[in-house]
Design a binder for these strands. Structure first.
Lengths: 341, 341
DNA sequence: CACCCGGGGTTTTACGTATAACTTCGGAGT
DNA sequence: ACTCCGAAGTTATACGTAAAACCCCGGGTG
């Protein structure tokens, strides 16, 4: 504790702490590493800790990583953080990471479809593993080639190359939506689908049409739109202006599209849900901000992130990763009602 | 290129590449570092690059950071990523970082008020600097003490300890809102304020009341709410149910609160904007999803992130960081109209 | 009395990279 | 014929940490 100051420009190292405490650098490392029972006396350890505090020492993480060969850091690849779902996935993953003294660094792909070139070129930090969420199939290549343990979230389990998957039971969610609407007497549907070509939307479309087979007299038109409110409104307007009898229900791939569809319905002078029912998907904050509140499917986004990080940690430990789809739940709200006869 | 394979368990190093290409490790480093004009022949460089490709070599970033003494990585501290504003700040910062071969790692404080204890305990990666956005004053301590260059975004410029600030002209935004409403004839106001105690909301409140002084006959009540739709609705309902003549305009600190306020207005059987005008702030995606669309103030969130990262890079280079508030703009939409006489 | 043992340390080494300092060699200049 | 020089490398070293291997010493054991 003899206050041997160094120039303020460079941070103190464990050697500075050692000098200050009058011990060797190895002793500092032992004390800080926590593995010093029976190796260092209590008094010496106390002196070391005092010096650490006094000098404001923080271990150089680059050096530690180099020495240990791991970085306790994972890369999370998501299409876009501005989508609330992915922000929540990150939050869950980061929470689990923090519990295990792990870090998370993000790579949001600029175009929202996945890393076109090399996700690692943009990541300046050394990594132990990768978690990728909702990637288009053609984006997998670069991730697989990195030679790092890979956990896929919300992606096609048929794609090879990942050590583990964490998925949502999207098909069941869309089934619940469809049965809900069929039960309300709806038969003429529009499916307002996302133009994004990822597993989750593929499954939503397939599950909708499968569930519809329960009602042989049901009909459905499909229209696609980009994932924003305006695009949803335009697509819905176009289909509502089309020929023939209009739909009594619009099933949307996403709450954002549903909000857009509601606006389109009202622009035609019709009312939600009295004239047309509208359903969303994801249960974003948006769903309860609009009026009427959206009937939608709640996705446990944080859980996806949590399970993803837990799976990666398991893989890194050589343990088997828990598998299985996470359940989702229909949340009936004000945007759906019995079909007009 | 003689295919000297290593065990797949451990990644190849620059020494492996050197062996494969028949050169020394130093030569590999020279070629990959790009500083080899006149030091290595074109043919040798080509051989090295072939070996790099063949072995799938990637430099160990921990080792590089240790050697160079910097990490080309910045920490971004934000209250919560699920708030669209901060997701956009991140996006902007990450974009600039990528242009400069820099990385960004996030630290979203769990409770939304700032890092209570040590933001660096949770960051497993070595850092060159810190960018902190919208922090409460008491959260600054830990950030300042880290001894890293600090750039503050959307924070009180009066707080000491930062190397640079990037702020929005929030006061001007709120002034525009207030003048807009005064111009429409409104005189009885409610200010639906955020319960979060950060600089931006302090300024919003102050600027609102200052702008109101232009109309001596104007009155304003203030009510606060947490930053979610439900809380906004409840707070607005409470104030609308109060005694005396109701307000003709509700000025909200945030679009989320404004969406909540709109619901409250309608629950009392009144209409937006015919009976009561409502304004938001931030221009989130939400603002155009609800009906009527919100009159609000557009904040260039990505620009905040961009300027913040540029300021940090400048500070790290020893250059002066550009200062000055970013302009904001009122976006009039359907949620405001002339006051009923 | 010689021997071993365990507590409490220290010395040394390795992790992978970037670069300063050194070597070697073929040709140009005088 | 000798020096000098630049091109094209190589060798050696340092970054800060963790941990393996070693050292010293006082006390219990055969």
């Amino acid at each position: 504790m003899s206050s041997a100051r160094r120039p303020a420009t460079s941070r103190p190292t464990s050697r500075d702490v050692a000098r200050d405490a009058g011990v060797s650098q190895a002793t500092v490392s032992l004390v800080l590493g926590g593995k010093w029972r029976g190796r260092v006396s209590e008094t010496t350890a106390g002196r070391v800790r005092d010096s650490v505090r006094e000098l404001g020492y923080r271990p150089n993480l680059a050096a530690r990583s180099l020495r240990l060969g791991d970085t306790r850091t994972a890369l999370l690849v998501v299409p876009a953080l501005t989508n609330e779902f992915f922000a929540r996935v990150y939050t869950g993953a980061a929470a689990v990471a923090a519990e295990h003294d792990f870090g998370v660094v993000l790579y949001p792909s600029p175009d929202g479809t996945g890393p076109a070139r090399d996700p690692f070129a943009s990541s300046r930090t050394a990594l132990d593993g990768v978690i990728a969420s909702s990637m288009a199939a053609d984006a997998l290549g670069a991730l697989r080639d990195a030679g790092l343990p890979l956990v896929m979230l919300d992606s096609d389990p048929g794609d090879a190359g990942a050590a583990a998957w964490v998925n949502l039971d999207i098909a069941d969610g869309m089934r619940q939506v469809t049965e809900h609407l069929l039960g309300l007497g709806h038969r003429r549907f529009v499916h307002l689908a996302s133009a994004v070509d990822t597993w989750t939307f593929t499954v939503r479309a397939r599950a909708f049409h499968e569930a519809l087979r329960a009602a042989p007299d049901a009909t459905a038109r499909t229209v696609t739109a980009a994932l924003d409110v305006r695009a949803g409104t335009q697509a819905a307007e176009a289909v509502l202006a089309g020929p023939g009898p209009g739909p009594t229900a619009i099933v949307c791939d996403d709450d954002i599209l549903a909000a857009g569809a509601c606006k389109a319905v009202r622009r035609r002078g019709l009312r939600v849900p009295d004239d047309i029912s509208v359903t969303g998907f994801d249960d974003l904050a948006l769903a309860t901000a609009v009026e009427p509140e959206l009937t939608t499917v709640r996705l446990p986004a944080e859980q996806v992130g949590r399970h993803g990080m837990e799976a990666l940690l398991a893989v890194l430990d050589g343990r088997p990763a828990a598998q299985g789809d996470l359940p989702v739940r229909l949340v009936p709200r004000g945007s759906t009602a019995a079909a007009r006869s």
